[in-house]
Amino acid sequence: MYGWIWRHLPGPLPVRIFEALLLISAVVALLLFVVFPWIEPRLPFNQVTTG
């Protein structure tokens, strides 16, 4: 999968590296600011009880 993405990035090597870093940053930002906050209340780790 990563090879397919790398082969389809346009430009010479420095531009490809910059684009790959930009894509990785976008995915991390999407996960941190959208996906993880959405899924956090649905996880069972918040219902901790001690008896």
Rank of each mutant, 00 (worst) to 15 (best):
P14R: 13
I24C: 07
R42S: 04
F18Y: 15
V34P: 02
P14Y: 08
W4E: 09
R16E: 02
G51D: 11
G11M: 07
P37V: 08
V48G: 01
L43Q: 06
E19P: 00
L22N: 08
R7S: 06
L22M: 10
P10Q: 12
R7W: 02
W38L: 12
Q47M: 07
G3Y: 03
Q47W: 02
G11K: 05
A29C: 13
E40C: 09
S25D: 11
L23M: 14
A26Q: 11
L30C: 13
P14S: 14
Y2L: 15
V48Q: 08
G51V: 04
V48N: 06
L30T: 14
E19N: 01
G51K: 04
V48F: 10
F45L: 09
L9C: 05
E40T: 13
T50D: 10
P12H: 14
L43R: 06
T50Y: 02
P10N: 11
H8Y: 07
P10G: 05
N46E: 13
T49M: 05
P10L: 13
F45P: 03
L32M: 13
P41I: 01
P12E: 14
P12W: 07
P41M: 05
L32K: 07
R16M: 03
A20V: 00
L13F: 09
L30S: 06
H8F: 05
H8T: 01
G51I: 02
I39A: 05
L32A: 12
Q47N: 15
L21C: 15
R42A: 03
H8V: 03
Y2P: 00
E19H: 00
L21E: 03
F45D: 02
I5F: 02
G11V: 10
I5K: 04
W4M: 04
S25F: 13
L30Y: 12
A26T: 13
P12C: 10
W38V: 10
A26E: 09
F36S: 08
V15A: 15
L9I: 02
V15P: 01
V34G: 05
N46V: 12
E19W: 01
H8I: 04
I39R: 01
